[in-house]
Simulated scan of single mutants.
Amino acid sequence: MTGARRTPPGRAGRLRLRHSLAVAQRGADLLEQKLRILRVEHRRLLSAEEAAARAWRDLLSEAESWLLRGLLLSGERALDSAAAGIVPAEVTVRWATSMGVRRPAVVSTSVPSRRPTAAAPGNTALVHSEAAFGRALRAAAEYAAAHAAAELVGAEVVSTRRRARALRRHWIPRLRAALDRSELALEQAEHEDGVRRRWAAGHERPPISTHNAIK
């Protein structure tokens, strides 16, 4: 414990140790309070992640089912022709910081319409497939954001728990032990100082005259 070893002796050292102990205890209380809030939030984010994952898998399965139908009806050439008119989608993620954790807060997805000059899909199944993949893309973005948020908050839970445990199990007990040693040393020093003062006071008394004593 570097701080305790460097503490000066005497009353100044004791005051410093008392202050350090109070700060450490307050820090542990705040970390444990933060940990409780983070755990509640982490459970909520895990539930949101699980729901987003289910939605994404369901929409992806629907899109793949329509795609398979379209391929069976018109073949791969029809798919290549339909894909030529698709414009790349855009995903925007807005981040927020809460309880010291920066995480994805809102995700938005823009799926542009097919180019006017592009050829239409070769059959109805491919039309449904294109729309279903657009919905699956949005769900995938929401799932990715939910997964990232849960992971980031989960990591902060672990880090906060570790710091609170280090204070409770290591730093605070060492500060208390150092404070006990400091107070014991002060008591011993004060006792020894009192003994020296009494001894000095006894030897400073004027000597008793033998002549006066005989009278």
Rank of each mutant, 00 (worst) to 15 (best):
L72V: 05
R77S: 09
E76H: 11
G70W: 09
P88W: 05
A55W: 06
R43I: 01
L59W: 05
A53L: 13
D80M: 14
H42S: 05
S74G: 04
L60E: 07
D58I: 12
A82D: 04
A83D: 06
S61Q: 14
S81C: 08
E49W: 06
A63T: 11
S61L: 11
L60N: 07
R69Y: 10
L72H: 14
A53N: 08
E50N: 14
E62M: 09
S65V: 01
L67D: 12
A51R: 12
L68C: 05
R43G: 02
I86V: 14
E49C: 09
V40F: 03
P88I: 04
A84F: 04
L38K: 00
E49D: 13
R57E: 05
E49H: 08
E41R: 06
A84S: 09
A55T: 13
A82F: 05
G75Q: 02
W56E: 10
R57F: 10
A63D: 05
A53G: 06
D80T: 08
S81V: 15
E49K: 07
A82M: 09
A52L: 07
A78L: 03
L67G: 06
A51V: 09
A82E: 07
W66G: 04
R39Y: 01
E50F: 05
L72W: 03
E76K: 10
L38Y: 00
E76G: 01
A55Y: 10
L73I: 13
I86F: 03
D58G: 08
L79F: 11
